[in-house]
Design a protein around this nucleic acid. Sequence first.
DNA 1: GTATGATTCAATCAGTTGATTGAAGTTTTG
DNA 2: CAAAACTTCAATCAACTGATTGAATCATAC
Lengths: 209, 209
Amino acid sequence: MSTKADTKNHILDVAEKHFARDGFAGTSLRAIIKESKVNVAAIAYHFGNKEDLYKAVTERFAMPVVVEQLKRLRSVNANDSSTLEDVLAAFYEPPLKLIKKMGKKGETLSMFLGRAQTEPEPVYSLVDSHYAACRDEFIEAIKRFVPDLSEAEYQWRFEFMLSLIVCFLTRHKPVKARYSKELEWSPEDVSATLSSFCLAGMRDMKVKV
Amino acid sequence: MSTKADTKNHILDVAEKHFARDGFAGTSLRAIIKESKVNVAAIAYHFGNKEDLYKAVTERFAMPVVVEQLKRLRSVNANDSSTLEDVLAAFYEPPLKLIKKMGKKGETLSMFLGRAQTEPEPVYSLVDSHYAACRDEFIEAIKRFVPDLSEAEYQWRFEFMLSLIVCFLTRHKPVKARYSKELEWSPEDVSATLSSFCLAGMRDMKVKV
DNA sequence: GTATGATTCAATCAGTTGATTGAAGTTTTG
DNA sequence: CAAAACTTCAATCAACTGATTGAATCATAC
Protein backbone atom coordinates (compact mmCIF):
# COMPACT_ATOMS: atom_id res chain seq x y z
CA MET A 1 0.00 0.00 0.00
CA SER A 2 0.93 3.64 0.27
CA THR A 3 1.86 3.83 -3.34
CA LYS A 4 1.66 6.86 -5.61
CA ALA A 5 -2.10 7.06 -6.03
CA ASP A 6 -2.71 6.43 -2.34
CA THR A 7 -0.46 9.24 -1.14
CA LYS A 8 -1.79 11.66 -3.71
CA ASN A 9 -5.41 11.00 -2.82
CA HIS A 10 -4.64 11.05 0.87
CA ILE A 11 -3.03 14.48 0.53
CA LEU A 12 -6.00 15.65 -1.53
CA ASP A 13 -8.43 14.40 1.12
CA VAL A 14 -6.67 16.20 3.95
CA ALA A 15 -6.07 19.33 1.89
CA GLU A 16 -9.72 19.48 0.88
CA LYS A 17 -10.75 19.22 4.51
CA HIS A 18 -8.49 22.06 5.56
CA PHE A 19 -9.28 24.31 2.60
CA ALA A 20 -12.97 23.71 3.25
CA ARG A 21 -12.74 24.62 6.92
CA ASP A 22 -10.07 27.34 6.96
CA GLY A 23 -10.03 28.66 3.41
CA PHE A 24 -7.04 28.93 1.11
CA ALA A 25 -5.14 31.65 2.96
CA GLY A 26 -6.02 30.19 6.35
CA THR A 27 -4.58 26.79 5.50
CA SER A 28 -0.86 26.15 5.85
CA LEU A 29 0.92 23.32 4.09
CA ARG A 30 2.30 22.35 7.49
CA ALA A 31 -1.20 21.79 8.82
CA ILE A 32 -1.90 19.49 5.90
CA ILE A 33 1.30 17.49 6.14
CA LYS A 34 0.97 17.26 9.90
CA GLU A 35 -2.39 15.54 9.60
CA SER A 36 -1.63 13.49 6.52
CA LYS A 37 1.70 12.38 7.97
CA VAL A 38 3.58 12.87 4.72
CA ASN A 39 6.61 15.02 4.06
CA VAL A 40 6.32 18.63 2.98
CA ALA A 41 8.29 17.83 -0.14
CA ALA A 42 5.67 15.26 -1.12
CA ILE A 43 3.28 18.12 -1.89
CA ALA A 44 5.86 19.80 -4.05
CA TYR A 45 6.64 16.51 -5.75
CA HIS A 46 3.06 15.53 -6.50
CA PHE A 47 1.41 18.88 -7.06
CA GLY A 48 3.87 21.78 -7.15
CA ASN A 49 3.07 24.77 -4.98
CA LYS A 50 0.16 25.57 -2.69
CA GLU A 51 -1.95 27.06 -5.46
CA ASP A 52 -1.39 24.00 -7.65
CA LEU A 53 -2.51 21.82 -4.77
CA TYR A 54 -5.71 23.83 -4.43
CA LYS A 55 -6.23 23.50 -8.14
CA ALA A 56 -5.79 19.73 -7.90
CA VAL A 57 -8.35 19.57 -5.08
CA THR A 58 -10.74 21.60 -7.19
CA GLU A 59 -10.30 19.53 -10.30
CA ARG A 60 -10.92 16.24 -8.56
CA PHE A 61 -14.61 16.89 -7.91
CA ALA A 62 -15.58 20.43 -8.87
CA MET A 63 -14.73 19.96 -12.51
CA PRO A 64 -16.74 16.74 -12.86
CA VAL A 65 -19.69 18.52 -11.28
CA VAL A 66 -19.54 21.27 -13.88
CA VAL A 67 -19.25 18.69 -16.64
CA GLU A 68 -22.30 16.88 -15.30
CA GLN A 69 -24.25 20.14 -14.99
CA LEU A 70 -23.56 20.96 -18.61
CA LYS A 71 -24.40 17.43 -19.71
CA ARG A 72 -27.72 17.64 -17.90
CA LEU A 73 -28.39 21.08 -19.34
CA ARG A 74 -27.78 19.90 -22.87
CA SER A 75 -30.21 17.05 -22.37
CA VAL A 76 -32.75 19.60 -21.14
CA ASN A 77 -32.11 21.72 -24.21
CA ALA A 78 -32.59 18.71 -26.45
CA ASN A 79 -36.00 17.96 -25.02
CA ASP A 80 -38.88 20.02 -26.42
CA SER A 81 -41.11 19.60 -23.41
CA SER A 82 -38.51 20.87 -20.94
CA THR A 83 -39.35 23.59 -18.46
CA LEU A 84 -37.41 26.16 -16.46
CA GLU A 85 -37.63 23.79 -13.52
CA ASP A 86 -35.63 21.27 -15.51
CA VAL A 87 -32.91 23.86 -16.02
CA LEU A 88 -32.79 24.49 -12.29
CA ALA A 89 -32.64 20.77 -11.57
CA ALA A 90 -29.81 20.40 -14.09
CA PHE A 91 -27.93 23.04 -12.14
CA TYR A 92 -28.72 21.98 -8.58
CA GLU A 93 -28.77 18.20 -8.66
CA PRO A 94 -25.25 17.27 -9.83
CA PRO A 95 -23.36 18.76 -6.86
CA LEU A 96 -25.97 17.52 -4.39
CA LYS A 97 -25.95 14.01 -5.79
CA LEU A 98 -22.18 13.77 -5.64
CA ILE A 99 -22.09 15.04 -2.07
CA LYS A 100 -24.78 12.65 -0.95
CA LYS A 101 -23.09 9.76 -2.69
CA MET A 102 -19.89 10.44 -0.78
CA GLY A 103 -21.57 10.04 2.58
CA LYS A 104 -19.53 11.37 5.49
CA LYS A 105 -16.84 12.69 3.15
CA GLY A 106 -19.54 14.64 1.35
CA GLU A 107 -19.79 17.11 4.22
CA THR A 108 -16.26 18.25 3.57
CA LEU A 109 -16.80 18.42 -0.16
CA SER A 110 -19.96 20.44 0.41
CA MET A 111 -18.15 23.02 2.45
CA PHE A 112 -15.26 23.10 -0.02
CA LEU A 113 -17.47 23.64 -3.05
CA GLY A 114 -19.38 26.38 -1.30
CA ARG A 115 -16.38 28.15 0.15
CA ALA A 116 -14.54 28.03 -3.16
CA GLN A 117 -17.19 30.36 -4.56
CA THR A 118 -16.44 32.99 -1.94
CA GLU A 119 -12.64 32.80 -1.78
CA PRO A 120 -10.57 35.95 -2.36
CA GLU A 121 -7.83 36.04 -4.94
CA PRO A 122 -5.95 34.13 -6.18
CA VAL A 123 -8.58 31.42 -5.79
CA TYR A 124 -11.45 33.51 -7.11
CA SER A 125 -9.92 33.72 -10.58
CA LEU A 126 -9.34 30.00 -10.63
CA VAL A 127 -12.90 29.17 -9.65
CA ASP A 128 -14.32 31.77 -11.97
CA SER A 129 -12.37 30.34 -14.91
CA HIS A 130 -14.02 26.98 -14.22
CA TYR A 131 -17.49 28.42 -13.94
CA ALA A 132 -17.37 30.97 -16.74
CA ALA A 133 -18.42 28.54 -19.47
CA CYS A 134 -21.00 26.92 -17.22
CA ARG A 135 -22.47 30.28 -16.32
CA ASP A 136 -22.72 31.41 -19.92
CA GLU A 137 -24.46 28.25 -21.03
CA PHE A 138 -26.98 28.32 -18.19
CA ILE A 139 -27.70 31.96 -18.83
CA GLU A 140 -28.44 31.09 -22.45
CA ALA A 141 -30.89 28.46 -21.24
CA ILE A 142 -32.59 30.91 -18.91
CA LYS A 143 -32.94 33.31 -21.83
CA ARG A 144 -34.99 30.75 -23.70
CA PHE A 145 -37.46 30.24 -20.87
CA VAL A 146 -37.57 33.85 -19.68
CA PRO A 147 -37.10 35.93 -22.80
CA ASP A 148 -36.72 39.63 -23.44
CA LEU A 149 -34.76 40.74 -20.41
CA SER A 150 -31.65 42.87 -20.28
CA GLU A 151 -28.21 41.30 -20.01
CA ALA A 152 -27.89 42.56 -16.43
CA GLU A 153 -31.14 40.88 -15.48
CA TYR A 154 -29.92 37.52 -16.73
CA GLN A 155 -26.59 37.94 -14.97
CA TRP A 156 -28.32 38.55 -11.66
CA ARG A 157 -30.75 35.71 -12.10
CA PHE A 158 -27.80 33.36 -12.47
CA GLU A 159 -25.97 34.88 -9.52
CA PHE A 160 -29.00 34.48 -7.26
CA MET A 161 -29.59 30.95 -8.48
CA LEU A 162 -25.97 30.15 -7.71
CA SER A 163 -26.02 31.85 -4.34
CA LEU A 164 -28.80 29.56 -3.12
CA ILE A 165 -26.81 26.38 -3.66
CA VAL A 166 -23.71 28.02 -2.19
CA CYS A 167 -25.85 28.93 0.80
CA PHE A 168 -27.03 25.35 1.24
CA LEU A 169 -23.55 23.89 0.80
CA THR A 170 -21.95 26.15 3.38
CA ARG A 171 -24.79 26.65 5.87
CA HIS A 172 -26.15 23.16 6.06
CA LYS A 173 -23.85 22.21 8.92
CA PRO A 174 -24.37 25.35 11.06
CA VAL A 175 -28.12 25.32 10.51
CA LYS A 176 -28.25 21.70 11.53
CA ALA A 177 -26.15 22.50 14.60
CA ARG A 178 -28.41 25.41 15.53
CA TYR A 179 -31.55 23.49 14.96
CA SER A 180 -30.06 20.44 16.65
CA LYS A 181 -32.07 17.98 14.61
CA GLU A 182 -30.62 15.36 12.35
CA LEU A 183 -31.92 16.55 9.02
CA GLU A 184 -31.69 13.81 6.45
CA TRP A 185 -31.97 14.99 2.90
CA SER A 186 -32.01 13.68 -0.63
CA PRO A 187 -30.42 15.50 -3.57
CA GLU A 188 -33.75 15.58 -5.37
CA ASP A 189 -35.57 17.08 -2.40
CA VAL A 190 -33.02 19.78 -1.74
CA SER A 191 -32.87 20.60 -5.42
CA ALA A 192 -36.65 20.87 -5.44
CA THR A 193 -36.52 23.08 -2.36
CA LEU A 194 -34.03 25.48 -3.93
CA SER A 195 -35.94 25.48 -7.19
CA SER A 196 -39.16 26.14 -5.39
CA PHE A 197 -37.62 29.08 -3.57
CA CYS A 198 -36.32 30.82 -6.65
CA LEU A 199 -38.56 29.65 -9.48
CA ALA A 200 -41.06 32.50 -9.25
CA GLY A 201 -38.24 34.98 -8.87
CA MET A 202 -36.47 33.60 -11.90
CA ARG A 203 -39.58 34.24 -13.96
CA ASP A 204 -40.94 37.42 -12.52
CA MET A 205 -38.25 39.26 -10.62
CA LYS A 206 -38.75 42.97 -11.06
CA VAL A 207 -35.27 44.21 -11.76
CA LYS A 208 -34.85 47.89 -11.23
CA VAL A 209 -31.10 47.86 -11.16
CA MET B 1 -4.22 66.94 12.07
CA SER B 2 -3.20 63.32 12.44
CA THR B 3 -4.44 63.15 15.95
CA LYS B 4 -5.86 60.11 17.71
CA ALA B 5 -9.19 59.87 15.91
CA ASP B 6 -7.61 60.49 12.51
CA THR B 7 -5.04 57.71 12.84
CA LYS B 8 -7.59 55.28 14.21
CA ASN B 9 -10.05 55.90 11.40
CA HIS B 10 -7.31 55.85 8.82
CA ILE B 11 -6.16 52.45 10.03
CA LEU B 12 -9.76 51.26 10.03
CA ASP B 13 -10.25 52.47 6.46
CA VAL B 14 -7.17 50.69 5.17
CA ALA B 15 -7.84 47.56 7.22
CA GLU B 16 -11.42 47.39 5.95
CA LYS B 17 -10.19 47.64 2.39
CA HIS B 18 -7.70 44.81 2.83
CA PHE B 19 -10.04 42.55 4.82
CA ALA B 20 -12.69 43.14 2.17
CA ARG B 21 -10.40 42.22 -0.71
CA ASP B 22 -8.17 39.53 0.80
CA GLY B 23 -10.16 38.20 3.74
CA PHE B 24 -9.02 37.96 7.34
CA ALA B 25 -6.38 35.26 6.92
CA GLY B 26 -5.18 36.70 3.64
CA THR B 27 -4.50 40.10 5.14
CA SER B 28 -1.24 40.76 6.99
CA LEU B 29 -0.81 43.60 9.41
CA ARG B 30 2.26 44.57 7.40
CA ALA B 31 0.14 45.10 4.31
CA ILE B 32 -2.11 47.41 6.30
CA ILE B 33 0.64 49.45 7.91
CA LYS B 34 2.50 49.68 4.62
CA GLU B 35 -0.45 51.38 2.95
CA SER B 36 -1.60 53.44 5.90
CA LYS B 37 1.96 54.58 6.60
CA VAL B 38 1.66 54.10 10.34
CA ASN B 39 3.81 51.98 12.60
CA VAL B 40 2.96 48.35 13.36
CA ALA B 41 2.79 49.20 17.02
CA ALA B 42 0.05 51.72 16.32
CA ILE B 43 -2.32 48.86 15.63
CA ALA B 44 -1.43 47.22 18.90
CA TYR B 45 -1.77 50.55 20.68
CA HIS B 46 -5.17 51.49 19.27
CA PHE B 47 -6.82 48.13 18.83
CA GLY B 48 -4.85 45.24 20.32
CA ASN B 49 -4.23 42.24 18.11
CA LYS B 50 -5.31 41.39 14.58
CA GLU B 51 -8.61 39.90 15.66
CA ASP B 52 -9.42 42.96 17.75
CA LEU B 53 -8.71 45.13 14.71
CA TYR B 54 -11.12 43.09 12.63
CA LYS B 55 -13.68 43.42 15.38
CA ALA B 56 -13.21 47.19 15.40
CA VAL B 57 -13.71 47.33 11.63
CA THR B 58 -16.86 45.27 12.02
CA GLU B 59 -18.29 47.35 14.80
CA ARG B 60 -17.84 50.64 12.99
CA PHE B 61 -20.49 49.95 10.35
CA ALA B 62 -21.79 46.39 10.58
CA MET B 63 -23.17 46.85 14.06
CA PRO B 64 -25.06 50.06 13.21
CA VAL B 65 -26.57 48.24 10.23
CA VAL B 66 -27.90 45.50 12.47
CA VAL B 67 -29.27 48.07 14.88
CA GLU B 68 -31.02 49.85 12.03
CA GLN B 69 -32.42 46.58 10.67
CA LEU B 70 -33.92 45.76 14.06
CA LYS B 71 -35.28 49.29 14.46
CA ARG B 72 -36.97 49.04 11.07
CA LEU B 73 -38.30 45.58 11.88
CA ARG B 74 -39.83 46.76 15.13
CA SER B 75 -41.56 49.58 13.34
CA VAL B 76 -42.91 47.01 10.87
CA ASN B 77 -44.12 44.91 13.77
CA ALA B 78 -45.85 47.89 15.35
CA ASN B 79 -47.84 48.62 12.20
CA ASP B 80 -50.96 46.52 11.74
CA SER B 81 -51.08 46.93 7.98
CA SER B 82 -47.54 45.70 7.45
CA THR B 83 -46.77 42.99 4.93
CA LEU B 84 -44.03 40.43 4.40
CA GLU B 85 -42.55 42.82 1.86
CA ASP B 86 -42.06 45.35 4.63
CA VAL B 87 -40.08 42.78 6.59
CA LEU B 88 -37.85 42.15 3.61
CA ALA B 89 -37.35 45.89 3.09
CA ALA B 90 -36.46 46.28 6.76
CA PHE B 91 -33.80 43.66 6.24
CA TYR B 92 -32.43 44.72 2.87
CA GLU B 93 -32.53 48.49 2.89
CA PRO B 94 -30.31 49.46 5.86
CA PRO B 95 -27.05 47.98 4.50
CA LEU B 96 -27.80 49.21 0.98
CA LYS B 97 -28.61 52.71 2.14
CA LEU B 98 -25.44 52.99 4.18
CA ILE B 99 -23.30 51.72 1.29
CA LYS B 100 -24.89 54.10 -1.16
CA LYS B 101 -24.52 56.99 1.24
CA MET B 102 -20.79 56.34 1.49
CA GLY B 103 -20.25 56.77 -2.23
CA LYS B 104 -16.93 55.46 -3.45
CA LYS B 105 -16.04 54.13 0.01
CA GLY B 106 -19.25 52.16 -0.06
CA GLU B 107 -17.80 49.70 -2.54
CA THR B 108 -15.26 48.60 0.01
CA LEU B 109 -17.84 48.40 2.76
CA SER B 110 -20.09 46.36 0.51
CA MET B 111 -17.40 43.79 -0.13
CA PHE B 112 -16.45 43.73 3.54
CA LEU B 113 -20.00 43.17 4.76
CA GLY B 114 -20.54 40.42 2.24
CA ARG B 115 -17.24 38.69 2.78
CA ALA B 116 -17.61 38.81 6.54
CA GLN B 117 -20.58 36.45 6.19
CA THR B 118 -18.45 33.83 4.48
CA GLU B 119 -15.24 34.05 6.51
CA PRO B 120 -13.85 30.91 8.19
CA GLU B 121 -13.09 30.84 11.88
CA PRO B 122 -12.27 32.78 13.94
CA VAL B 123 -14.21 35.48 12.11
CA TYR B 124 -17.31 33.36 11.58
CA SER B 125 -18.03 33.13 15.30
CA LEU B 126 -17.61 36.88 15.66
CA VAL B 127 -20.00 37.67 12.81
CA ASP B 128 -22.46 35.06 13.93
CA SER B 129 -22.55 36.52 17.43
CA HIS B 130 -23.54 39.85 15.90
CA TYR B 131 -26.21 38.37 13.69
CA ALA B 132 -27.67 35.83 16.08
CA ALA B 133 -30.12 38.24 17.71
CA CYS B 134 -30.98 39.84 14.39
CA ARG B 135 -31.65 36.45 12.81
CA ASP B 136 -33.88 35.32 15.65
CA GLU B 137 -35.98 38.45 15.53
CA PHE B 138 -36.42 38.37 11.77
CA ILE B 139 -37.35 34.70 11.90
CA GLU B 140 -40.02 35.57 14.45
CA ALA B 141 -41.37 38.18 12.04
CA ILE B 142 -41.42 35.71 9.16
CA LYS B 143 -43.33 33.32 11.37
CA ARG B 144 -46.11 35.86 11.73
CA PHE B 145 -46.55 36.34 8.00
CA VAL B 146 -45.92 32.74 6.97
CA PRO B 147 -47.30 30.65 9.81
CA ASP B 148 -47.33 26.95 10.55
CA LEU B 149 -43.96 25.86 9.18
CA SER B 150 -41.32 23.77 10.87
CA GLU B 151 -38.36 25.37 12.60
CA ALA B 152 -36.04 24.13 9.85
CA GLU B 153 -38.20 25.77 7.20
CA TYR B 154 -37.94 29.14 8.92
CA GLN B 155 -34.20 28.77 9.37
CA TRP B 156 -33.72 28.13 5.67
CA ARG B 157 -35.97 30.97 4.63
CA PHE B 158 -33.80 33.33 6.62
CA GLU B 159 -30.58 31.83 5.24
CA PHE B 160 -31.79 32.20 1.66
CA MET B 161 -32.99 35.73 2.31
CA LEU B 162 -29.58 36.57 3.75
CA SER B 163 -27.69 34.87 0.94
CA LEU B 164 -29.30 37.15 -1.64
CA ILE B 165 -28.00 40.35 -0.07
CA VAL B 166 -24.60 38.74 0.50
CA CYS B 167 -24.63 37.82 -3.18
CA PHE B 168 -25.39 41.38 -4.21
CA LEU B 169 -22.79 42.87 -1.88
CA THR B 170 -19.98 40.63 -3.07
CA ARG B 171 -20.88 40.11 -6.74
CA HIS B 172 -21.93 43.61 -7.67
CA LYS B 173 -18.42 44.58 -8.70
CA PRO B 174 -17.58 41.44 -10.74
CA VAL B 175 -20.97 41.44 -12.43
CA LYS B 176 -20.54 45.07 -13.34
CA ALA B 177 -17.06 44.30 -14.67
CA ARG B 178 -18.35 41.36 -16.70
CA TYR B 179 -21.29 43.25 -18.05
CA SER B 180 -19.13 46.30 -18.63
CA LYS B 181 -21.97 48.74 -18.09
CA GLU B 182 -22.08 51.35 -15.39
CA LEU B 183 -25.03 50.17 -13.40
CA GLU B 184 -26.32 52.91 -11.18
CA TRP B 185 -28.59 51.72 -8.43
CA SER B 186 -30.65 53.03 -5.56
CA PRO B 187 -31.00 51.20 -2.24
CA GLU B 188 -34.76 51.07 -2.66
CA ASP B 189 -34.55 49.58 -6.13
CA VAL B 190 -32.05 46.89 -5.20
CA SER B 191 -34.03 46.07 -2.10
CA ALA B 192 -37.15 45.79 -4.25
CA THR B 193 -35.26 43.56 -6.68
CA LEU B 194 -34.08 41.19 -3.97
CA SER B 195 -37.52 41.16 -2.37
CA SER B 196 -39.13 40.49 -5.69
CA PHE B 197 -36.81 37.56 -6.31
CA CYS B 198 -37.50 35.82 -3.02
CA LEU B 199 -40.96 36.96 -1.99
CA ALA B 200 -42.86 34.09 -3.59
CA GLY B 201 -40.30 31.63 -2.28
CA MET B 202 -40.59 33.02 1.22
CA ARG B 203 -44.30 32.35 1.15
CA ASP B 204 -44.57 29.16 -0.82
CA MET B 205 -41.26 27.36 -0.86
CA LYS B 206 -41.89 23.65 -0.76
CA VAL B 207 -39.42 22.42 1.79
CA LYS B 208 -38.76 18.74 1.62
CA VAL B 209 -35.66 18.79 3.73
C1' DG C 1 7.50 76.52 30.27
C1' DT C 2 7.33 72.51 32.20
C1' DA C 3 5.26 68.39 33.79
C1' DT C 4 2.02 64.89 32.51
C1' DG C 5 -0.19 61.84 29.67
C1' DA C 6 -1.15 60.33 24.89
C1' DT C 7 0.73 58.84 20.68
C1' DT C 8 4.26 57.29 17.40
C1' DC C 9 8.48 55.28 16.34
C1' DA C 10 12.53 52.01 15.12
C1' DA C 11 14.28 47.77 16.54
C1' DT C 12 13.58 43.27 17.60
C1' DC C 13 11.44 38.75 19.11
C1' DA C 14 10.30 33.88 18.35
C1' DG C 15 7.43 31.22 15.49
C1' DT C 16 5.53 30.15 10.99
C1' DT C 17 5.29 30.46 6.12
C1' DG C 18 6.04 28.33 1.24
C1' DA C 19 9.60 26.31 -1.03
C1' DT C 20 14.07 23.72 -2.24
C1' DT C 21 17.92 20.59 -1.81
C1' DG C 22 20.27 16.20 -2.20
C1' DA C 23 20.36 11.89 -0.11
C1' DA C 24 17.76 7.63 1.08
C1' DG C 25 14.43 4.52 0.16
C1' DT C 26 11.08 2.07 -2.85
C1' DT C 27 9.13 0.12 -6.94
C1' DT C 28 9.35 -1.05 -11.73
C1' DT C 29 11.68 -2.60 -15.70
C1' DG C 30 15.03 -5.01 -18.45
C1' DC D 1 19.59 -9.49 -9.95
C1' DA D 2 20.78 -4.90 -11.38
C1' DA D 3 19.66 -0.67 -13.48
C1' DA D 4 16.47 2.80 -13.90
C1' DA D 5 12.74 5.48 -12.60
C1' DC D 6 9.75 6.84 -9.08
C1' DT D 7 8.75 8.25 -4.41
C1' DT D 8 9.80 9.73 0.28
C1' DC D 9 12.64 11.76 3.59
C1' DA D 10 15.23 15.06 6.95
C1' DA D 11 17.45 19.34 6.84
C1' DT D 12 17.48 23.85 5.55
C1' DC D 13 16.40 28.51 3.29
C1' DA D 14 14.99 33.27 3.23
C1' DA D 15 10.92 35.76 3.79
C1' DC D 16 7.07 36.85 6.39
C1' DT D 17 3.96 36.41 10.40
C1' DG D 18 1.78 38.69 14.75
C1' DA D 19 3.40 40.79 18.61
C1' DT D 20 6.32 43.45 22.11
C1' DT D 21 9.70 46.58 23.95
C1' DG D 22 11.44 51.03 25.51
C1' DA D 23 12.78 55.28 23.77
C1' DA D 24 11.29 59.45 21.22
C1' DT D 25 7.80 62.69 19.99
C1' DC D 26 3.67 65.11 20.46
C1' DA D 27 -0.30 67.50 22.68
C1' DT D 28 -2.36 69.10 26.67
C1' DA D 29 -3.00 70.90 31.36
C1' DC D 30 -1.17 73.28 35.09
